[in-house]
Simulated scan of single mutants.
Amino acid sequence: MLRSYLRLVLFALGLLIGLQVPGFIADYAKRVEAHRLEAEQGLSGFRQTAQRFFQGDLDALVAHYRASDDAVMRSDADSVAHLVARAKLLDKEWAAMQGAWYVQVLHLATAADRRLLRETWDGYSYQVLLSPTAIAWGLCAALLLAWLVESVLLLVAGMLGFGRERRARQRHWG
């Protein structure tokens, strides 16, 4: 009986963990979007200058700043280059988060910006979404966790010899 309750608790834990996945994905996507809009706003003046003098090429604007005789312009080239690189990174992250759910999960697991992930995790508050996607994630995580833990425990019990006596009795008497 205790084993049944432990299975239920394990299943419930897996369900609650799985329900968090879509919420975290949504929070990450919102954070990327917010940073992306802020980066675009920070670059807007430089974009206008690049449009006017370099056909919109920000890299050409940075190269022009770096080649300048003015020390202030050369110094600002690094700042503008940093803003341009950040905007490109955020555009790439935003594009990755526009794909299907499995593309988003794969991106978060393998290629997401670690700083943005940490920022999202630090600001994340646990939530229980009841959307079909969240419910599917919850059920899948619950079943997977329950199956993995029970399989590991049965494997360990088998290696330690628990349950052999009962199986032997069942063969001889059952």
Rank of each mutant, 00 (worst) to 15 (best):
86 R>M: 11
83 L>W: 08
147 W>S: 13
95 A>I: 08
11 F>S: 02
21 V>F: 09
148 L>Y: 06
142 A>M: 12
99 G>V: 02
167 R>Y: 05
170 Q>K: 10
47 R>C: 03
107 H>G: 03
148 L>N: 03
171 R>V: 13
75 S>D: 14
49 T>C: 07
27 D>I: 02
36 R>D: 12
104 Q>L: 04
14 G>D: 00
48 Q>N: 15
12 A>I: 09
66 R>V: 00
124 Y>P: 06
2 L>T: 14
167 R>P: 07
49 T>N: 07
110 T>D: 09
80 V>F: 02
59 D>V: 11
162 F>E: 10
28 Y>M: 00
119 E>Y: 10
18 G>E: 05
158 G>P: 10
4 S>Q: 13
69 D>V: 12
27 D>R: 04
136 A>E: 00
25 I>M: 06
151 S>V: 06
165 E>T: 14
72 V>D: 01
123 G>S: 08
173 W>S: 11
61 L>K: 08
40 E>Q: 13
61 L>C: 09
18 G>D: 06
142 A>E: 07
7 R>F: 15
122 D>A: 13
119 E>V: 07
113 D>W: 06
108 L>N: 05
105 V>F: 03
157 A>R: 12
22 P>N: 04
82 H>G: 15
146 A>I: 00
126 Y>D: 00
35 H>I: 00
15 L>A: 10
107 H>R: 04
109 A>Q: 15
116 L>P: 03
78 D>G: 09
163 G>D: 03
55 Q>H: 09
124 Y>S: 07
121 W>Y: 12
97 M>D: 02
40 E>Y: 05
34 A>M: 07
107 H>P: 03
53 F>V: 04
126 Y>K: 09
168 A>N: 08
165 E>V: 12
72 V>G: 01
65 Y>Q: 15
54 F>N: 06
105 V>A: 05
101 W>F: 15
73 M>C: 07
35 H>K: 11
106 L>K: 14
70 D>M: 05
51 Q>F: 05
